[in-house]
Design a protein around this nucleic acid. Structure first.
Lengths: 222, 222
DNA sequence: TAGATTGTTAATCGATTAACAATC
DNA sequence: TAGATTGTTAATCGATTAACAATC
């Protein structure tokens, strides 16, 4: 178990593609696509860097990590760049998702347009409130959470989206993990416990508000 | 200008309260409040650490940075802890906000319950679509973006929330900064350019999806 | 007292940046 | 060629973690 984890870690290091690098990939992708639409054939690290407000060295490192090779004086060929980025992010693969907690945020996410771009298909939305169960939100039927396990099983769902109350999140996370979910996108302000193989991605709104509020209280301390 | 920035930087370092630390504050706050409700009088670093899945050393460093002193064998007195956390996050202060882009996500955020907790009051929501202008969402009137500057001025708005299209975000950011906005909570997948004194907080959904999608493509590389 | 817990210094780690040679 | 840009190594930086003395 530990050995396997070490192997993985070594692979990740060898590939030089850190978590932070992966987070930047979509921004590169977006800008490259826009440049292509404008008729450009190449894009350079300085352009990409200024778009993300980072150093150009970092961009070159990121692109090198996904095996892109640029040309001095020209930059990176746009077609190959877009393809490598799309490929690394796995945009061409289809992944099924379920969403738990169909409140306002959950409903907004069900309509989130970028899911399609990433090949994410929402196979079901779940709640416990009779007010929402049975409704169709953006084409997704809202079901009672009792049906969660069945849906995950039937559709081979890999992604769980959690837009529930803080204190319900861990329990649902456990259930999802039990059913074989591979990655959880969590909007509750809690750090979920899950086994090593399950990716937990936290979207911590409250943390953001804390940073903003703290900054406004005393800008000098930032 | 540079000297001032250096002073600020020194202050921040002196206070030992890093950006990451501030992000953790609300989680501490949440757990401490729950513990108090359960009748506890003290909370220790190990409890807080396991809730956030970090080391207890880090918790003690964070709490030391906001001048909290614990007692050996007991931990931190809950009342004082909650107060210090609340104080550092500035939960008792009122800040006004405007939201631009009243799509599904914008509407969800207008109903976001935690704004109240942080003392954030949404003074106005803005869009350009005639379909939504004039409506009331969660008690907030949706206005044409032409009125943005006026509202910011009249209500001394400090916070701008951007839930607009990627390519519209920078322009609106500029306008907000011009009008004196101090902090921007940005949901567009772009890194906004703004002067030093303006805090930009990015909520990068696309980056999260990229991380999840990349992980599913090849878990071994994580 | 013994043991649990804090508080702090030093070490580690990973990510970013600087420097600069290589290339077209 | 000269100059722009890539690619890579080494240095820096900030955040996390380990180690351990201090305290009740």
């Amino acid at each position: 178990m530990d050995e396997k984890a070490n192997d993985k870690e070594q692979l990740r290091r060898a590939s030089q593609l850190s978590r932070s690098s992966v987070e930047r990939l979509y921004s590169y992708y977006l800008l490259a696509k826009r440049a292509r639409e404008q008729g450009d054939t190449h894009i350079n690290s300085r352009q990409l860097a200024s778009f993300l407000q980072i150093g150009d060295t970092q961009v070159r490192k990121d692109l090198a990590a996904i095996n892109l090779v640029g040309q001095p004086k020209k930059g990176y060929e746009i077609g190959a760049t877009i393809e490598a980025l799309s490929n690394t992010m796995g945009l061409d693969e289809v992944h099924r998702a379920v969403l738990c907690g169909v409140g306002k945020l959950g409903q907004a996410l069900l309509q989130y347009s970028r899911f399609g771009e990433f090949g994410f298909k929402v196979s079901g939305a779940f709640d416990v409130s009779p007010d929402i169960i049975g409704q169709d939100i953006a084409g997704t039927r809202v079901l009672h959470v009792d049906h969660l396990a069945k849906v995950i099983e039937i559709f081979s769902v890999e992604i769980g989206i959690l837009t529930v109350n803080v204190w319900a999140a861990q329990e649902l996370c456990n259930k999802m993990v039990e059913c074989g979910i591979k990655a959880i996108w969590n909007f509750a302000p809690i750090h979920l416990q899950a086994p090593k193989g399950v990716l937990i991605r936290n979207e911590d709104f409250a943390g953001s508000l804390a940073v903003i509020s703290h900054y406004l209280k005393d800008p000098a301390e930032q």
